[in-house]
């Protein structure tokens, strides 16, 4: 394994976080009724209590686009940071579910936020995209000399929530997606100097580890030539995910602690991977850092992909005090990407 090319770059800070969840939370009773599946089963096996959907569950109408949700989250992060929008030097978005393939959704977000003449980047990525956005943002400040930037993660998984579908025909690898996912967005303002929350971003891990491995999750896309082909739009190898994600999470935790020269006892907060209420509980137990406070959200927000780390960050910032340390672990099971980041409040 190569060591990460991370030779202690100039310090970068997290100034603020903003999030956006569409509409009212949808509980298991409502979801079970719409999907015509058993509510108790969702409670027991998925362990997620509520989620939010950008699409109206009754009519199927799209109420918010990904750009709308990300712009809301971005505006909240900007307002909380105290940073003048004119000082924002770049915008980075991580998502697996862009509104269009072109223009990249990040540009619509910049437009909605009134940002212009700035570099924009969109990372096509699953659960690790938010971490990659933080990593790229950190590099743009530490390496390119920007003073501040906006990094965003969001997903609109309900694009694949086909309400007219009879799930009796669905394969288990397809069915699971209907009960796991939700929609949402989150954003953070990164700065070169401590501002607002003044949390130092000590380290970011982002590593592809999928050489020769079958994907754990695939989201297909369709064009005019292949839109009628009988292919499953979303496939999840949930058995592989249940087997490998907890192991990878433990590896990430200990690798990052080693690189940071932090002991597990020094950790005040742990942000574990957010798969589902049940899987996250299990992974957190296996991470086994009893002295650290768990910061999770998935049982309330559903798995909304790239929004998750920002939703966790929002919960973290509300309780983090000066000198405290936090470590976040994320695993993208699509092509098995290890990700994580470490924070320390100044």
């Amino acid at each position: 394994m190569q060591s990460p090319p991370d030779r202690d770059p100039a310090q970068v800070y997290l100034a603020s976080v903003g999030t956006a969840l569409p509409g009212d939370p949808v509980d298991n009773a409502t979801l079970a009724k719409v999907l015509k599946v058993n509510e108790e089963w969702i409670d027991h096996f998925i362990g997620t209590r509520t989620r939010h959907f950008a699409r109206d569950l009754g009519t199927g109408t799209v109420r918010w686009s990904l750009a709308d949700l990300c712009a809301q989250a971005g505006a909240r992060a900007l307002a909380a940071s105290g940073v003048d929008p004119a000082e924002i030097g770049f915008v980075v978005l991580g998502t697996a579910t862009p509104d269009n393939l072109m223009p990249a959704t990040v540009n619509h977000i910049a437009d909605q936020l009134g940002l212009d003449q700035v570099p924009t980047y969109q990372l096509q990525s699953g659960c690790a995209g938010a971490v990659q956005a933080l990593g790229l943002g950190r590099t743009l400040i530490a390496g390119d000399g920007h003073r501040a930037g906006l990094v965003i993660g969001g997903d609109v998984c309900s694009k694949h929530l086909d309400l007219n579908r009879d799930l009796a025909d669905a394969a288990p690898s397809d069915l699971v997606n209907y009960v796991l996912f939700g929609d949402g967005a989150g954003a953070a303002v990164l700065t070169a100097e401590p501002a607002a929350e003044a949390v130092a971003l000590r380290r970011v891990l982002n590593r592809f580890t999928g050489l020769g491995r079958e994907p754990g999750q695939v989201i297909d896309w369709f064009g005019l030539a292949d839109r009628y082909e009988d292919r499953q739009a979303v496939r999840e190898d949930y058995k592989a995910i249940e087997e490998f994600v907890p192991v990878m999470a433990v590896e990430i935790l200990w690798e990052m602690l080693g690189d940071l020269d932090w002991s597990a006892e020094e950790l005040d907060y742990l942000l574990p991977p957010q798969l589902s209420g049940r899987m996250t509980r299990r992974i957190h137990e296996e991470l086994d850092v009893p002295g650290a406070i768990e910061v999770s959200c998935v049982a309330d927000t559903g798995n909304n992909g790239n929004a998750l780390p920002f939703l966790q960050l929002e919960r973290l910032l509300g309780q983090m005090s000066s000198g405290q340390k936090a470590l976040a672990v994320a695993v993208e099971s699509s092509k098995w990407i290890k990700a994580g980041f470490a924070l320390e409040k100044i």
Partner: peptide, 21 residues
């Protein structure tokens, strides 16, 4: 567990009764 969900769903549809999970 997902085959269990499919079976429970199919049984509930066929019998018209909720199953005690």
């Amino acid at each position: 567990s997902l085959y269990m969900l499919k079976l429970v769903t199919a049984l509930e549809r066929t019998t018209g009764r909720k199953l005690p999970v």
